[in-house]
Design a protein around this nucleic acid. Sequence first.
DNA 1: CGCGTCGTGGTTTTT
DNA 2: CCACGACGCG
Length: 734
Amino acid sequence: MDVSPILDNLNEAQREAVSAPADNQLVLAGAGSGKTRVLVHRIAWLIQVERVSPYSIMAVTFTNKAAREMRGRLEQLLGDTLAGRTRSMWVGTFHGIAHRLLKAHWQVLKLPQNFQILDSDDQLRLIKRISQGLQLDETRWPPRQAQWFINAQKDEGLRPDYIQETGDPHQATMLAIYRGYEEACRRGGLVDFGELLLRAHELLLNNPDILAHYQQRFPFLLVDEFQDTNTIQYAWLRVLAGATGKVSAVGDDDQSIYGWRGAKIENIQRFQHDFGNVQTIRLEQNYRSTGLILKAANHVIANNTGRLGKELWTDGKDGDPIALYAAFNEQDEARFIVDNINRWVDEGNSFNSCAILYRSNAQSRVLEEALLRENMAYRIYGGQRFYDRLEIKNALAYMRLLVNRDDDTAIERVINTPTRGIGNKTIETIRLFAREQGCSLWQAAQNMVNSSHLSARAANAVGAFIALINALDEACTDQTLPDIADTTLKQTALLEFHRNEKGEKGQARVENLEELVNACRAFDPNNLATPADTDTGETSLLVQFLDNASLDAGESQADEFDDAVQLMTLHSAKGLEFPRVFMAGVEENLFPHKMTLEDPSQLEEERRLCYVGITRAMVQLTISYAESRRMYGNENHNRISRFVREIPSECIQEVRLKTDVQRPAGFATRTNGSLQDQGEGTGLDLGQRVIHSIFGEGVIIHFEGQGNSARVQVNFDNEGSKWLVLQYANLTPA
DNA sequence: CGCGTCGTGGTTTTT
DNA sequence: CCACGACGCG
């Protein structure tokens, strides 16, 4: 067997990981160390050298993107040898695979065959209704909090009956909502994300024959991003592996940034204990960043305790030092970044080689405004995803009703969208009736139209709705998926409804709806992140499409190929890399965020987030912070983040503006603005302290325009920042 | 039912 | 400060 294609071009550690004995292994893969590569080559090794059938391999990831990438690269690496048999391998997300198990064993689980997946939006709506049903005051018991509670319990594998009651009234209320919610899900055949995992776990735990089947089928399990597994995922994996299954766990404890939503970094250590004979391999050679960037990252993360220990290194160049810029305020910071991008692009680089990373989404606004002012194309990641959009969810709700009339969440969503005279009053009456009868809203509505439970007008409207759905169903029989979508949009008048919406919003929504039809046309069940078994022939294309829409929300935005600056939070940057990275707002209280300062473990997670941020940069990293930042309406003076202080000074070069104006103490010397915007010839300078007869003292933060129209933005100590026309402002240096 | 006003809350996000 | 949701009026 010629193993060279599998082992060539791997470094020693990678090779060791790929060719390790077919046993349990833990691969600690540092940022940019070729993790996916190792995973993919490991699978190839198992198949070609260890002669493991692809049929016996399961590979689990967290995101659909990662699953798709893995499958793609796998097919690329051994497409020929496998001759299409990659399909028999299970590659997917935890949720996708759990879904597949539930679909295969719906009868055992006492689920309706076409159970629907509840996304977090649907979940929240449902919880709201449960709370209302329990007569709870929404301000005292915020549905969001209940949702958080329920999901946290499910992540820990806890059903209501297993939760220890503490006698705490708050817990009691949350539990009551949880119970009501579970009942509603059971009645409606609804399964939320946590439930998918929980059920998949229970399926194996409670059915020895089924467990034995899967244990035999999958003697080899591979898990990506192991540091992100939560309690239930870990438990599921452990059950599935049993005494004989071999697990390759790949992850990086230093990049664990999802503890706040249940990920258990400890699972890595537990894995070493719970699974026998674990060989641990570290991938520390980095192929992404320059030496100084890696040095900075290593020093920052070294401040965390309890690490498994890893140090990135490169045999590449040291590269440029990290640039550090002290901005006056967030506007100045944004302008600085934009200026730098301009210069970078002037040097022949592309816009999409630049990423601006920030801790919280609120920071993006100022940055966007600055980019907009410069007419610079940008793309924000992590916005609303395609299948999460209101208009799309409405359309999907209609399509769900075609599959299952008893889907209450779907009815709730569209019974009066577009408006058809079924007001809140009527809906509430139907809900009440349904609750009394223990039936679905659809059944209740049908019943009430035929009896005289409703006013003539309401009965008319509800009857029309029922007729509409039935007629739509009829019209869609035997139609292709895109035709079903198209017919739905037209017959329900959704398209019309949004077309009549005023403003650009309606326009965008119509376009999205048209895009939905395209998505239906392009839908290929064989090309999913987690493809269904070939033996699920009973499931209609429509059902598969709907399931996929719930499990894979689609990329947040199109225009992937535009040359645009990339904006995103540090969290969503994980796994990505960019030649030029700007980390903005690196200040105490913002990053680390002030909510984390009290708790050492949360603070360490912030530090890992910083580590993730630094290691995104390939060529040049620029860190900036603002000495003054407007947050929630008032001015904040934050100190530079402790994380910056953890970077060795030889890795950093402070950016200073060339200027000879004296600065008041406390302000870093200003640097590098674009020259025409610095108020030349006005006797004033950016960053200068000035006095205004009415507003008092402040600092100049912007210049704009020339001559008579020249304006200046001054950040006044007591009045906030204001734009003034220079000619009339009568500013004197302080 | 649709629009306006008031009040509140405001890390991070995938599935 | 600003965005979103609840509530009340025409």
